[in-house]
Design a protein around this nucleic acid. Structure first.
Lengths: 239, 239
DNA sequence: GGATCTTGCTTACGACGTAAGCAAAGCATG
DNA sequence: CATGCTTTGCTTACGTCGTAAGCAAGATCC
């Protein structure tokens, strides 16, 4: 995992971040935090534990992060910033707004599925400004979104409406999808891997009969269909 | 507010609940917890504080609640159980499935707006069974939903699809709506009432220009329109 | 009179987040 | 070289948390 001490270096451009610890920078902490959450859940992330994870005392982290809360904020931020590194997602529309939105939606879904434990934080943590909604949590992405639409035929009002519709669609779908994966913004879950947690279906005959149907996973396909439906609806706004 | 719990004995009829403490029952604790969260946020809710709120030591609560986590679960449960007391919402369809869904959706929205601080918990806490989605968190409601649809022309598969679409629609809309109200599943926020938190819009010209448009609140109307659109879509599933 | 329950209090333990100060190591200057 | 400043991480310490364990006072029933 770690251990190996080529310390010194100092080179701020980190050519290869996987080799050894390059002196505990903010990015390294946030990355480790994200990984930790993905592995053990938010509840398990404490300053002390993250410290030992990085081979360092808890208090050392405070040089780079003012508090646990802002650590979480930072983690959320770095995770959604990965959208910029997704080669499938364009910050500017290249083949029309539909293509732009499709790529953006798929990129966000990929992000959510890659970070099922972090995603609920993305969804519920307060944003930079009240009208910046999850999961597009940053001003930059909102700007990108609005620009993409207004530059391809949407009126400003239509673009804003589209932004709202898009946000709530994505948040709803992705949150439920990662929740179904066993996301765990809440209880501890300790060492138990996952007891099937069979509920008592006595008295719920329909549930009993439809249980199989209900537990089938069509998320990907549902996502696709609903997304297309959304785009169709937006087409009417475009004008 | 409500009584009708013949618990064990000892006269559960409480003449005047506001004057003195009527012996600390589970329901009383959960109600107090919900109120507390609504007033100060989840983060502020500790066993000790809830204890003193009820005029009791923290450890006394453990007679009725096995842990803080399950306290939160209980609070979530009692809040969504209020749906049953909403006279506008029917457990069985009386005027067709559209009417049923409209009433259900509006009832849930009322609930969310009445408990903006608790609602994110409703949205993110793990449910009884993996396929029971928020915000219809209980087996009873899922059963009711499925029965309403299958008894009014939906095939079983269509009813399940409708259930999923309905869930993700509601969760998306309501979560964003309460988040916009300043819901706070996360940071502490302490005593500060709400600093405007003006973000720096330098470099985001579109955001600057559309800020007013973006911060306008059309939630109610948006909700109505999207809900109707959803119902239209479901009509195609009905057959 | 016991017994046995029920209820709430008391004490205590091992986390936790984090304030405050300290030690060592890197650096620039004389 | 010594000097001092800055950066980094460690140490210690405080108050708060969730909660295990045991206790005391009443209620209930024999």
């Amino acid at each position: 995992m770690f251990e190996s001490e080529p310390e010194s270096a100092a080179d701020p451009e980190d050519a290869d971040p996987t080799t050894a610890k390059p002196r505990l920078e903010r990015q390294r902490i946030l990355k480790a935090g994200a990984d930790f959450i993905e592995q053990f859940g938010v509840r398990q992330l404490t300053m002390r534990r993250l410290g030992t994870e990085l081979g360092v005392e808890a208090m050392s982290l405070y040089r780079y992060v003012p508090s646990r809360e802002s650590l979480l904020d930072g983690i959320v931020e770095t995770v959604i910033d990965q959208l910029y590194e997704d080669p499938e997602v364009y910050v500017e529309p290249r083949h029309g707004w539909q293509d732009y939105l499709l790529r953006l939606a798929h990129g966000l879904r990929r992000l959510a599925l890659a970070h099922p434990q972090v995603f609920p934080l993305i969804a519920t943590r307060p944003a930079e400004a009240p009208w910046v909604r999850p999961p597009l949590r940053s001003l930059r992405w909102v700007e990108s979104f609005l620009k993409a639409l207004t530059s391809t035929g949407f009126s400003e009002k239509a673009a804003v409406d589209a932004y709202r519709a898009f946000s709530s669609f994505l948040i709803g779908h992705l949150l439920l999808e990662v929740a179904a994966m066993g996301a765990d913004v809440g209880p501890v879950e300790e060492a138990e891997p996952h007891p099937p947690k069979e509920a008592d279906l006595g008295g719920y005959p329909l549930l009993q009969r439809l249980q199989k149907l209900l537990s089938e996973d069509h998320s990907a396909q549902e996502f696709e269909e609903s997304l297309e439906n959304l785009l169709d609806r937006l087409e009417n706004l475009a004008g």
